[in-house]
């Protein structure tokens, strides 16, 4: 395990290059450039606000609904986009996998890092909306690195697993986006966590993305700390999942080149 990590560290410049490649390529020859990073969550925010807040009277725990949905949509879009790119990242780079050696996990991890930039750009608008709606800022923001770190770790764990499986079974790249779409309904993006029936709350919070989004909303909108117990449980789940996924990935990566 340590040898694997040490080797990955030696190839950190490659990781950086791949992420940079993704970012550059995504917005090259586009007119709006980085502005595209915020269009997706912004468009969803407008639709959700009209459909759910106006027609559906969905509660937002007292926060303005546009800001409420946008704070959920930014981490969720990051999750959905990054996972969608990561799942096929190894299979799509097979010409390289067959020709030259380097730790193969640079592909899924690089894909995630490439999306991190979009996430950060989209997050800037949260600050803008907070100023617009005069939401007070508190020291609770110090929880953000943990929450964002948890999301990235969760993404890496799942990506290692699905990108490796996708080399063996190309069905995975169709299954994953489907699961992500369904996941939207068991994650508090459209509605607040308070709407979940109390007896299901503990089960609901086993989803690390629910913990992340609920945590971000508490910290940003309500100047509250995240719920500590679910946060610790999720961190433990992601830690275990990540370790298992990494060991699995390293075990099967030697077969990649033979399978194409």
């Amino acid at each position: 395990m340590l040898t694997h990590l040490r080797e990955l560290y030696r190839y950190r410049d490659l990781l950086f290059s791949l992420a940079l490649r993704d970012i550059k390529v995504r917005y090259r020859q586009t007119f709006l450039g980085f502005a595209w990073a915020i269009t997706q969550p912004l468009a969803y925010m407008l639709i959700f606000t009209v459909v759910f807040a106006n027609f559906g009277q969905v509660s937002s725990d007292g926060a303005p609904y546009p800001l409420f949905s946008y704070t959920g949509l930014v981490p969720w879009t990051f999750f959905a986009t990054a996972l969608g790119l990561a799942v096929n990242s190894v299979a799509a780079n097979m010409n390289l996998v067959k020709k030259i050696y380097f730790p193969r996990e640079v592909f899924p991890i690089g894909a995630i890092l490439g999306c991190l930039m979009d996430f950060l750009v989209a997050s800037v608008l949260i600050a803008g909306l907070m100023v617009f709606y005069r939401v007070p800022v508190s020291a609770q923001l110090m929880w953000l690195p943990w929450l964002v770190g948890l999301e990235i770790a969760f993404l890496i764990s799942i990506s290692l697993l699905v990108s490796a499986l996708n080399v063996f079974y190309r069905d995975i790249k169709y299954i994953v986006p489907l699961c992500v779409q369904l996941g939207l309904f068991v994650t508090p993006v459209i509605y607040p966590t308070s709407k979940v029936p109390p007896h299901l709350h503990n089960w609901y919070m086993l989803n690390p993305m629910a913990v992340v989004i609920d945590g971000v909303r508490r910290v940003v909108l309500h100047s509250q700390p995240p719920e500590l117990q679910p946060l610790l449980v999720s961190t433990a789940i992601v830690g275990t999942l990540g370790l298992g996924a990494y060991l699995f990935f390293k075990r099967v990566e030697v077969k990649f080149a033979d399978l194409i």
Binding site: R10, Y11, D13, L14, F16, S17, L18, L20, R21, K24, V25, R28, Q29, N95, L96, K99, I100, Y101, F102
Partner: peptide, 29 residues
């Protein structure tokens, strides 16, 4: 390995950017 790794090139990136991309693929810092 001294092999032709044009496979590591991305068509949308410039020659200069591809030198860095390809170099790191080959294990250079």
């Amino acid at each position: 390995a001294l092999i032709e790794v044009g496979a590591g090139f991305h068509p949308d990136l410039t020659g200069q950017e591809n030198i860095y991309l390809n170099g790191t693929i080959m294990g250079l810092k």
